[in-house]
Simulated scan of single mutants.
Amino acid sequence: MHSPTTKYIDGALYARSLTPYAFDLRVHDLGHGHVEATALPRYGWHEIDATPEALATAALAQGHVWAGGEVCDWVPAPAPTEAELLDRAARNRERSARRARTQVRRLVKAKNLDTMLTGTYRENVTDRERLSRDVDVFIKRVRRVIPGFEYVCVFERQKRGAWHFHMAVQRVQSHYLRKGVLVKSYDLLRALWRAVVGDGNIDVSRAIRKRQRSTGKLAGYLSKYIAKGFEEGQEGDSYRASGKALPKPVVLRSLATSADGAGTDLLRLLMAFFPDGEFHSAYLDCGGYYMALSP
């Protein structure tokens, strides 16, 4: 994601500084040993000399119209072209996908989910609304047997058009009491799904030994499914979850003026509180820095 380097404000054109003057350090402690942190740049802006044509172009991009040598607020701008509408929709979809992907990844970690259920139909179900309704009913039935059932669920469409779901859940008990009989947990989940859809199946991808590592891996899997859905232009809710609240981040300021310097400050901050963690890092397209901590 690239932010604009110029913008129009009150009849003047401003340019963004080439280098940031500081970075905001945002640390999300998701619990269970999982931490995600970012260093996001802060830029200064200064007024620049601009021709009337440059001012008009900048103003128009922000919804104003050039008229009689002045820029008038609240005057309708010309209707965007089809190409501009398509470009705008693509950028909006990209932003929405990025937000949803981040939210899903963090929810899986915060809820400490380490097992994935994949629900399918035997028939070729191409109606997404039907899948949505069936999943809602399935979850209600599961919660009657497993109170406090935590999950994050995403929908996926196969190439042939058939819908199914992937659901991250906490590791369940080996057996549950159902109508006075002990039933294997995954047999029970399959039975509950089939009671809703008829002939279908629930596949279970069990957690690997190091539980927190499997949680991180599962978070990555589900966020990729989210990205795939947005790339295909799917409409509707991008994911479901048993509560979407996340811990508030801690926000600090670094006076570094480069991503490397901010990354160093971020690492020092995390090491002070999580000295035994294993860190993974990457540069961000916006000029910032990302860091994740696994147990």
Rank of each mutant, 00 (worst) to 15 (best):
A256E: 00
T38E: 08
R101E: 09
W66G: 02
G233M: 09
K184N: 15
A195P: 01
H166E: 08
E94N: 11
K248T: 11
P4H: 12
H166D: 08
M167P: 04
D87H: 13
G200N: 07
L25V: 00
S281L: 05
I226C: 02
T5L: 15
N112H: 15
K140I: 09
A256Y: 00
S238C: 14
P52I: 11
Y239C: 06
H2V: 14
N92Y: 09
Y225E: 10
G288E: 03
P52T: 11
Y225G: 00
E150L: 10
S258F: 01
L55E: 08
Y151I: 07
Q173D: 15
P249H: 06
P147E: 06
Q158S: 13
S281A: 14
Q212A: 15
R144D: 15
G263P: 00
P80V: 09
V142P: 02
V169S: 02
R26K: 15
G243T: 09
A195T: 11
T57M: 12
K248S: 11
S214E: 11
G263L: 01
A272P: 01
N124G: 07
R240G: 05
G233P: 01
R157Q: 15
L284V: 05
R95I: 13
P76C: 06
R95Y: 10
H46K: 12
K7N: 12
F273R: 14
L55Y: 05
I139M: 13
H32R: 09
K179H: 14
D199H: 05
G68D: 13
R144W: 09
R194T: 11
E129K: 12
Q173R: 14
L284H: 04
L266N: 01
K210M: 12
G233S: 04
G236V: 06
R171V: 11
C286K: 05
S205N: 14
A110R: 03
A259F: 00
R122I: 05
E53P: 04
R206A: 12
V196D: 07
Y186P: 03
A282R: 12
L284R: 09
L30K: 01
G288T: 10
V183H: 02
K217D: 05
A12R: 11
V172K: 04
E231A: 08
S3D: 14
A259V: 07
R213Y: 11
K184F: 13
R171Y: 09
V154A: 00
D29N: 12
Y8F: 15
A12D: 13
M167S: 04
A50H: 04
G200A: 07
S281E: 14
L113I: 12
G63C: 10
G119C: 15
Y21P: 00
A292F: 02
S294D: 13
G277R: 02
Y43G: 00
P76M: 06
S258K: 02
H46Y: 14
L270A: 05
S223I: 01
D127T: 07
R209Q: 14
Y151Q: 06
V183E: 12
R88K: 14
R91T: 10
A54G: 08
K111D: 01
T126N: 06
L266T: 03
T126C: 11
G236D: 10
H64M: 09
E82L: 13
R143H: 11
